[in-house]
Simulated assay, not measured.
Amino acid sequence: MRLTARELNRATLARQLLLGRQALDVAEAVRRLVAVQAQHAASPYLALWNRVAGFDPADLDAAFANRKVVKATLLRITLHAVHAEDYPHFHEAMQPSLRAARLGDRRFTSSGITAADADGLIGELLGFAAEPRSNAEMMAWIEARLGVPPKGVWWAVRSYAPLLHAVTGGPWSFGERPAYIAAGIPPTVGEAADQALRTLVLRYLEAYGPASVADVAQFALVTRSRVRGALNDLAGGLERLTGPDGTELFDLPGAPRPAADTPAPPRLLPMWDNVLLAYADRSRVIPPGYRKLVTRVNGDVLPTLLVDGQVAGVWRRVEEGIETTAFHPLPRETWDELADEARALMALLADREPEVYRRYKHWWSALPGAEVRILAD
């Protein structure tokens, strides 16, 4: 079966809860989304606001506090919020990537200790992290144990050891100075990584399919050979499809694939929203001409306008309201709907961080815009 680009887009929107807000518990919403990019503390809140009917940020505060949702270094070797039940599988699946990215890096190897030395440290370190510990506390502990400059060792270990970010307060549960706490699972060196990857692949297809080998590899930042192996092992339970360019795609039988003409409401997505990062072929949601506008040279992914399921511009909070920059002209009814979204977003931000993402304002200095509007109360 050959799918059109628009059919792929609607499949993604349906599974990512972007065809209409759903009445879901926040932990269940995170589980449905598989993972929510959490590089910026505000982004999981804004991601769920776009997807959950009647979203109350206090519910996510509580989910983080009681560890129904946890934050850790996982997919693409960056911070994600995931359902607590998914964390052990995702952590195990990512071990080869996390270890390779850190233990072979000069920042670690220049310390003079070996990977085996670092591994031998983990069990005792997790005991020390039975309560929240700061970066400074972790580095002082490592220096006392190993007698070497601890910065590179801690930089490596904190990425692949089973450590969570502990709630530190602030408007979005986590402040700029992180604290770490043991995840409560034993350290591993990847013995069960392939089995865990099969679980991750199935969860990915559930939330982002249909998708190619390259898409899965991009989402998690694991090697394509590992992804092919997992898909081969799962082949009997998967459906094979063909993308608009002839690429082989995989999906779960019976998974939602709405009609191409299914309406898609406009949304104001947060920075680094996963729907923009989950595919090797991002044209599913980002027109190719706009990709470099919203994904900056250092990897920052700007807050975007999603119109008819595709990126159509960017937004930012300014003193007067929500400033929206559309990359192409939008119809009046779309602007009206975006204005409604902007009013609701300002109400959410008002009690938390009214000028969210303000540190990224420099990216707007050279953005082209067919239309720039400030949407205010």
Rank of each mutant, 00 (worst) to 15 (best):
R343Y: 04
T12G: 14
A42E: 11
A27F: 01
P178G: 09
P244A: 12
A130P: 00
R343K: 09
S365E: 15
H91Y: 02
H165E: 11
S134F: 05
A161K: 02
R373F: 11
Q39H: 12
W315L: 00
A35E: 03
E176A: 14
E323N: 02
E355G: 15
Q37A: 09
V70N: 00
A312F: 03
R332F: 11
L367I: 10
V285Q: 03
D194E: 14
M94A: 06
A53S: 12
T262G: 06
Y290Q: 10
V227K: 04
P263T: 02
L103D: 03
N274T: 10
W154R: 10
V318Y: 04
S283C: 04
E137R: 03
F55G: 05
I322S: 06
P331W: 05
E319P: 11
D119G: 14
A84E: 06
R6K: 09
N66C: 12
A326T: 01
A339T: 13
R359Q: 08
Q195T: 13
S97Q: 07
G169S: 05
A193I: 09
V311I: 13
S159H: 14
G299P: 05
Q22S: 15
A179W: 13
H362T: 12
D61V: 06
A136W: 14
R240C: 13
W315N: 01
A339P: 08
R32L: 07
P44S: 09
T4Y: 06
H80A: 04
A29E: 02
V301S: 08
D300T: 12
V275Y: 01
P171I: 04
P149Q: 09
D281R: 09
I286E: 01
L121H: 01
T262I: 08
V314D: 00
R296Y: 03
L125K: 05
D336S: 15
Y290V: 03
R257C: 08
A115C: 03
L375I: 14
V285A: 04
A136V: 13
A63M: 09
F108V: 01
R21M: 07
Q37Y: 08
A278V: 02
A366D: 15
S173L: 06
L200R: 00
L200A: 12
M139A: 13
K361H: 15
L277H: 03
A41G: 05
G229T: 11
N9W: 02
D281T: 06
T304N: 12
T168V: 05
G170S: 13
D300H: 06
A118N: 03
H80L: 01
R10A: 10
N66R: 15
H40T: 13
L345F: 06
Y290I: 01
H89A: 12
A23Y: 10
A179D: 13
E371M: 08
A53M: 07
Q218E: 11
K71T: 10
I374D: 12
E355I: 14
T73W: 15
A14R: 10
G229F: 01
I142Y: 07
R158N: 08
R343M: 08
T242S: 13
V34M: 14
Q37H: 15
L60I: 06
E337V: 11
H91I: 00
A129K: 08
L268N: 00
P263A: 03
V294C: 02
E176S: 14
A129C: 15
R224C: 07
L306G: 03
P244N: 09
E353I: 04
G120Y: 05
N274C: 11
Y160I: 07
